[in-house]
Design a protein around this nucleic acid. Sequence first.
DNA 1: GTGGGTGCAAAGTGTTTGCAAGTGT
DNA 2: ACACTTGCAAACACTTTGCACCCAC
Lengths: 157, 157
Amino acid sequence: MAGINRVAAKEKFLRFLEQKNLRMTSQRQVIIDTVFSTDQHFTAEQLLDWARKQDQSVSRATVYRTLPLLTESGLVHEMDFGKDYKYYDPNYADSPNHNHLICQDCDRIVEFESDKIDKLQDEISQSLGFSLKAQQLRLTASCDELKRLGACKNKAC
Amino acid sequence: MAGINRVAAKEKFLRFLEQKNLRMTSQRQVIIDTVFSTDQHFTAEQLLDWARKQDQSVSRATVYRTLPLLTESGLVHEMDFGKDYKYYDPNYADSPNHNHLICQDCDRIVEFESDKIDKLQDEISQSLGFSLKAQQLRLTASCDELKRLGACKNKAC
DNA sequence: GTGGGTGCAAAGTGTTTGCAAGTGT
DNA sequence: ACACTTGCAAACACTTTGCACCCAC
């Protein structure tokens, strides 16, 4: 499903820039092209690599300066997967409420949604006297396939 | 409820050290005393401050070297609240399954538990082919009291 | 006595920023 | 033209580490 709403996302980002009186530059173009042509989670450094394959002139500084714009526009979310660097998730344009399961065996990240959990989160927030604004649910799990077969179809198992 | 299981936690940590052939030193003593006499979340730097009030000789290096031991022992959990530094939560000894709601208005952190959510998380992991090992749920919310009264009984509202 | 522990300061690592030059509108 | 942007490299902030001395067992 890589970048199924790529065009829509890019347009939305353009509107975001306009509304904040910011400019579309060739570097930003390359960066958002890169971001919205994948559905993988990525780090700043990965994004820099990818973008540079398309345009050598993109600098680390510009990547780091563009990422906050992307998160502020809501098209990309900053994620913590327990590592020392931030991950960015470009799939919130398509599925604004999704959650993550990280396999501790193979580092695979599975995205999932659950209306039931969403509902419970809302109820809990209300009962504590708050209005829910955002949520982040991260499950860490181990791969049944690995345990059963001694290997799974992913990376490092 | 600050440190209700303080003694138990300290004993458990002692056993953890023994089992790994590590030693109890006066600095470690001070650090764990400090950790288990609060139920607040804290940063490394805060812990250093607190510990130094009790014993000037505790160094930043020792704090940073002790924290991984505390997390490895399971008595303290490393938390990400979206800041640039790690937070540590000493309440997992008492409530191993709790979750967090962070108020975006006043930065208050509320801990809560939910059997229903725990159960759903297990079901979802199973259905995806994994066995749940750990979970982290973080709700970001805004304070109803603030909205209604223009102020809430906490810090910065 | 020996192997782990400590404090100090230097080194790391991911990220941010000041500056002078460049560029979209 | 003006204000926003860029690349570069230096600066940052938090955390980790090498080393010589110290101390718990």
